[in-house]
Simulated assay, not measured.
Amino acid sequence: MRIREFEWPDYDAVVALWTAAGSDVVPRDELVAKLTRDPELFLVAESSAGVAGVVLGTYDGRRGWILRLAVDPAQRRRGIASGLVDELERRLRALGCPRINLMVLPDNESGLRFWQSLGYLPTPDVLHTKPMLAR
């Protein structure tokens, strides 16, 4: 397995992976904006079969965020997710990032176990969100 930065020819394979993993697809225009900011934090894991996993991270100068982690369901339990997170953490550390946040839905028991196994601890924060619709 090789972990590298996302490249635009990967987009269709990443969309297919997100779909197969049950994740929402990040629209192309949102990725364009994201990639102008910190392209080194959007990573793909490549196996002999193609894109096997993907993680989308970002850093705002204060906190790192892991926004999207997905692994091809046929290639799970092979260390792909852990490898992606490890590389993303390494890159965030190199940027001087002091803390990484992520969100896991409370009913995602396997996700909660995975993140806790990597040292991510649940916090009692209450998430608020506001969609910014075009006017």
Rank of each mutant, 00 (worst) to 15 (best):
V15G: 01
V15W: 03
A16H: 04
L17G: 12
T19D: 01
T19H: 00
A20G: 02
A21Q: 05
A21S: 10
G22E: 01
G22C: 02
S23D: 08
D24R: 00
D24A: 07
V26M: 11
P27H: 04
P27D: 11
P27N: 04
R28S: 03
R28E: 15
D29M: 01
D29Y: 06
E30M: 11
E30H: 11
L31I: 03
V32I: 13
V32G: 00
K34H: 15
K34Q: 15
T36K: 14
R37F: 01
D38C: 11
P39R: 15
P39K: 15
P39A: 15
E40V: 06
L43V: 03
S47E: 08
S47D: 06
S48V: 05
A52L: 04
V55L: 08
L56R: 03
T58K: 11
T58Q: 15
R63A: 09
R63G: 01
R63W: 14
R63Y: 13
G64K: 12
L67I: 00
R68M: 14
L69F: 07
L69E: 07
L69D: 05
A70D: 04
V71G: 06
D72A: 14
D72V: 03
A74L: 13
A74E: 14
A74S: 13
R76G: 04
R78E: 12
G79L: 00
G79P: 00
A81E: 03
G83D: 11
L84C: 12
L84E: 10
E87C: 01
E87S: 03
L88P: 06
R91L: 13
R91T: 09
L92S: 08
L92P: 06
L92Q: 14
L92V: 09
L95F: 04
C97Y: 08
P98Y: 03
P98A: 10
P98D: 07
R99I: 15
R99Y: 06
I100D: 14
N101R: 10
N101D: 12
